[in-house]
Design a protein around this nucleic acid. Structure first.
Length: 386
DNA sequence: AAGCCGGGGCT
DNA sequence: AGCCCAGGCTT
């Protein structure tokens, strides 16, 4: 016998997939979860431009931007992007370089490249987004999560979504132990979410689950007093809301030093374009390289200059140092292999250009490089090494 | 299954 | 200054 408003009996069994509860998800429990989440969401959802006007194209753009990026960060980017590319036709017709310029600062630039490619595919197929998760999934940049999000939010399809927020909320509600990033666990979470999603309000339900995860059921400091479903939450009942989900293995990080060379000539600065794929693909940057942080600054600067193929000339060359943390390896990004009489040729870089400060505005740069460009314009670049 | 993308938030 | 976060894609 299970009573509503009372903890359902959880029984953790470990025969095959020990992360999943065998008992506890009753129809009453699900109905109460839906009711409470939908009510809470209606009261507490953050106003966003894509919620104010959820046409499929806008939902799509917002969901791509929201991958790995928080809502507050996305909003101003979304508004600028939509103002310039108001529909799929405008996006498909625009040059990639301009799309990247509007994406500048958001990171993960493959998202912009895929969005652009997908827009062109959609235009070729009549200009309408597919309406089912399965069909959406075929577009570049749309995986299981984004397909479910667009299908449920924009088209009202009763399909689930599982992202990091949903994973965390479900782990806490149902006390799911183990590494939930593993494929077997993710598969189970999708099945679970499929059972839970409200068939009458799939978009609101999915957004409610994610919104709860991002504003209340947060990773390190959950605001349980503000949570509408503590009475359904096993982690809360145990008094250990942050004990689940358990952390998964992390790739160790290393500190490296990132060196940019600012080469000026007759009021122009030297920029290089990165290869179309990989880190900062297709973006431009001041010629730069990275080296192990263990070397002395002097050695580092000399080696960096050699690496960039630039002869050290005190008045022309400025090296800006910045510490960065990468995931697992030290990147060596690109180099200029020749530098003579105003001509610069490049190795892994795709192209080089001498740009005036005005022209610099129209080229997509990674966020740290844009900051350097702005510092250069404001004449605040200091720390000359030579 | 594991690693690569790259910003921002938090401590 | 360093740790944490995370969907899609490649290998």
């Amino acid at each position: 016998m299970v009573r509503v408003h009372h903890r359902a009996p959880f029984l953790l069994v470990g025969y095959n997939l020990p992360t999943m509860p065998a008992v506890g998800i009753t129809p009453e429990w699900i109905a109460e979860l839906r009711r409470q989440l939908l009510r809470w969401f209606e009261l507490h959802k953050r106003p966003t431009p894509w919620r104010d006007n959820p046409d499929p194209y806008r939902v799509w753009v917002s969901e791509i931007m929201l991958q790995q990026t928080q809502t507050a960060t996305v909003i101003p980017y979304f508004e600028r992007f939509i103002a310039r590319f108001p529909d799929v036709h405008a996006l498909g017709a625009a040059p990639l370089e301009e799309v990247l310029r509007y994406w500048e600062g958001l990171g993960y630039y493959a998202r912009a490249r895929n969005l652009h490619r997908a827009a062109q595919l959609i235009v070729q197929n009549g200009g309408h987004l597919p309406t089912t998760a399965e069909q959406l999934r075929e577009l570049p940049g749309i995986g299981a999560y984004t397909a479910g999000a667009i299908a449920s939010i924009a088209f009202g399809q009763p399909v689930p979504v599982v992202d990091g927020n949903v994973t965390r909320v479900l782990a806490r509600l149902l006390w799911l132990k183990g590494d939930l990033k593993r494929h077997a666990a993710q598969k189970q979470l999708w099945q679970l979410a499929e059972q839970l999603v409200d068939p009458d309000h799939p978009g609101a339900f999915n957004q409610a689950l994610m919104e709860l995860g991002s504003t209340v059921c947060t990773p390190t400091q959950p605001r349980c007093p503000e949570c509408p479903v503590t009475h359904l939450c096993e982690a809360y009942r145990r008094g250990q809301p942050t004990a689940v989900p358990e952390p998964s293995r992390r790739i160790p990080t290393r500190t490296v030093v990132d060196v940019s060379a600012i080469v000026e000539r007759e009021g122009r600065v030297l920029l290089a374009q990165r290869p179309p794929e990989g880190l900062w693909g297709g973006l431009w940057e001041f010629p730069r390289t990275t080296r192990s942080a263990r070397e002395s600054l002097e050695t580092l600067a000399i080696r960096a200059a050699e690496q960039l193929g630039i002869q050290v000339e005190p008045r022309q060359l400025l090296l800006q140092l910045r510490h960065v943390v990468t995931y697992s390896k030290i990147h060596l990004y690109g180099y200029l292999c020749a530098w003579h009489s105003g001509e610069a040729q490049c190795g892994p870089y795709r192209a080089v250009a001498w740009l005036t400060p005005e022209e610099l505005q129209h080229y997509p740069l990674p966020a740290p490089q844009r900051k350097l460009a702005e510092a250069l314009q404001n004449q605040t670049v200091q720390g000359t090494l030579f």
